[in-house]
Write a protein that binds this DNA or RNA. Structure first.
Lengths: 121, 121
DNA sequence: CTTCTATGTTGACACTCGTCGATATGGGAG
DNA sequence: CTCCCATATCGACGAGTGTCAACATAGAAG
């Protein structure tokens, strides 16, 4: 890992339509933009996190209870740990409703990634 | 990191138009597909690698000599190490021509990522 | 041949990461 | 209140990662 400081947060913020960084093919990436993009890719660089993310993204209603997606072959604390990472990267939002906690994909995440790739969504 | 085996290689292969995995939002990601996608994102999850990648992707002619892109604030061995990682992930190809080594973005990498996001390039 | 330059490899180090069991917290039910 | 269930946090462990200096290799030029 780079020895630079941890990028603490928000890669993306709710309501942003234009995302954090210019397209990756548009020119030399500025160091600060590279940090933000790297943090986003890093959050998606684990198979378990990708499976959790895709389960939420493809769940009817756009949201999923942890209990709906927890079956990914690792322990409950590990699932919680991964969901926290995705939350910290700005990719997911969570909301407690009664006994259960519901996660959904943060708005404009897909659009942000598309912009990085120089595609219009 | 996941304790599963290392995904040794080719996330993408030259000539592939349809990439390794279904769109991330299309449904629950299969474990094997998640491994492949994670390996790709992992390769892009470092700021230095992202800057190298964007320098190559945006370089005139679609290729760049190492000497053109090596100025990213780390030592020469570290640059070489990161380029190797990107090569192993199938994101870059390299070719030696005389004294210099030229890197280019592997074909259909961008299209593959676009497909993951369920966008048509 | 030798020398120089460009790039890759090796080995070591500190740090980060994914994982788990144990424990804590939060809220509904009785 | 107590009990139970869902989720989060803590602490520890082994594995992996980024970095560098030192060295190795490849090719051009003298």
């Amino acid at each position: 890992m780079s020895k630079s400081e941890v990028v603490e947060l928000p890669v993306l913020q709710d309501g942003d339509v234009v995302p954090c960084c210019p397209p990756i093919t548009a020119g030399e990436l500025a160091p600060a933009d590279a940090e933000k993009m790297a943090a986003m890719f890093k959050a998606l660089s684990d198979p378990v996190r990708l499976r959790l993310f895709s389960k939420i993204a493809s769940h009817p209603g756009g949201e999923a209870c942890v209990c709906d997606i927890a079956d990914v072959g690792v322990s409950q604390p590990t699932v919680s740990h991964h969901l926290k990472k995705l939350r910290e990267a700005g990719l997911l939002t969570s909301e407690r409703r009664g006994t259960w906690v519901y996660y959904r994909v943060a708005p404009s995440v897909v659009a942000a990634m598309a912009a990085m790739l120089d595609l219009r969504a």
